Simulated scan of single mutants.
Amino acid sequence: MTYAARVYGSDETDTGPEPGHTYRELVGGPLDGQLLDVTGWSEAMLVGGAFLMAPLSAYGPGGRASYTPDRADGPFVWDGDIP
């Protein structure tokens, strides 16, 4: 059986990536393996990366994980956790 990658912010009942959306894989850290929906993000937003809520971060619930792009169309790689 093949499983679709989990989309960040979705719950376990969601079916996975939606057709017509653009995603970046999150690599490393507490959100490793999830997909981030970047549909509609500007180039500046993509270059800036994302600070994402991560309950399993070093700071616990309410902590965030910092992810930045590896390359223009590549995955977002974990930089570390922030409060």
Rank of each mutant, 00 (worst) to 15 (best):
G60R: 04
R24A: 05
P61R: 06
M1L: 13
E18A: 12
Y3M: 07
R71E: 08
Y59D: 03
M1E: 08
E12P: 00
D32N: 15
T2I: 15
F51Y: 07
S57Q: 09
L35H: 06
V27T: 11
D32E: 12
T13R: 12
D81Q: 06
R71P: 05
Q34M: 15
S66F: 13
G74N: 01
H21W: 05
V77M: 10
A65Q: 03
P75A: 14
D81I: 15
Y67I: 06
L26C: 01
A50D: 08
S10N: 09
A50V: 13
P30T: 07
E25M: 05
A5R: 15
A54D: 05
D73L: 12
T22N: 11
Y8D: 03
G9M: 06
Y23L: 03
G16K: 11
Y59I: 02
T13N: 14
G33W: 10
L31N: 01
E25F: 05
S66H: 14
F76N: 00
T22G: 04
V38Y: 07
G60T: 00
V77D: 05
S10F: 05
G49T: 08
G74L: 04
M1V: 13
R6I: 11
E43L: 14
Q34D: 06
G49L: 04
V7E: 04
W41S: 08
Y59L: 02
P30L: 11
F76G: 06
G9L: 09
A44R: 02
G28F: 05
H21E: 13
A54I: 01
P19S: 12
